[in-house]
Nucleic acid binder design. Structure first.
Lengths: 159, 159
DNA sequence: TGCAAATCATCTGCTGTCAAACAGTCTGTT
DNA sequence: AACAGACTGTTTGACAGCAGATGATTTGCA
């Protein structure tokens, strides 16, 4: 049937086709999709990605200022305020003034926080297996290495 | 100098170190950084990533409804309204009612839109070279293939 | 010592995304 | 024909991220 205005119908699969051909702006959009998947899992589980990262780092390296957390985890300072608020209110973190520099806090993970972290960590393998199930083991390793490299190079701005 | 509360000092490089070790929540955060880099470049250049993708697709496959654009490009319908508003106001796109289905528009790229697209496309290689300069050619190919694979698998939800 | 500049945490305003609700239109069944 | 249900585009409200300004504190320098 002839129509003057030919409108593309469903099932064109334009986006994946384009993406497979070359690395361009579209692929940066794909990165956002991966990030969204993590956010969705995190909110569903009840512990935001930011909160998770903070607990992870505090557990690994000990008490930190919000500034240090902010820089290392690439989370904006003003956002870190709310993240620490939530963690503190949940009792997963203590905020004590650093006696050597009373401008900053010494944010410390509590036992409750450590238990919460362990619980969240336990769910990650299943999430990753599900999210990246279409990738081979090699591809997962490649993705990991590549993103780490980009991070170290400071892609995406300083914060 | 001994202190009771040991606060981690600058330069720990905790995040990259963690990221390099294993694929976990932190790496999904890295994906967000890549997406941010593209957004920053786009706004600086004056044509948003969403607008760019819409022009790209309209140029490639012809007139589409906003719904089709939305699904293929993984942009929320309600966001697509604004994207098309901006493109239409700039004269890069025409919105005509589809006579066969008056619910939908037939969004069509104009000559102005085609010129704008060409101008934006011309800047992409330089942006990519800069953003991914720390990657080898092989790694770029791997990243491209992996993200495309994830896209086809529908990572990040339907929209 | 005294003062300018930098630093840390916080707050405010702006922007963009998403979910849900809505009006108009189409499709299929009776 | 009549009506229920699905679809398209739009609006609204809630929410997160980021830039810039602010108050309190520290550091560096004259």
């Amino acid at each position: 049937m002839a129509t003057t205005t030919r409108t593309t119908d469903r099932g064109t699969a334009y986006f994946p086709r384009l993406a497979a051909e070359r690395l361009d702006i579209a692929l940066c959009r794909a990165s956002a999709a991966v990030a969204r998947a993590a956010d969705a899992h995190a909110t569903e589980e009840g512990l935001g990605v930011g909160q998770h990262l903070v607990l992870q780092m505090l557990d690994a390296v000990g008490p930190c200022s919000q500034q240090t957390l902010s820089e290392e985890l690439r989370i904006d300072r003003s956002v870190m305020v709310g993240v620490c608020d939530d963690l503190e209110q949940a009792g997963h973190v203590r905020r004590e003034r650093n006696p050597r520099d009373r401008r900053s806090y010494a944010v410390t993970i509590t036992d409750s926080g450590r238990r919460r972290l362990a619980r969240a960590q336990a769910l990650i393998p299943a999430f990753l297996d599900d999210t990246f199930k279409v990738l081979t083991s090699d591809e997962r390793g490649q993705l990991s290495a590549i993103l780490a490299k980009l991070l170290q190079a400071g892609v995406g701005g300083p914060r």
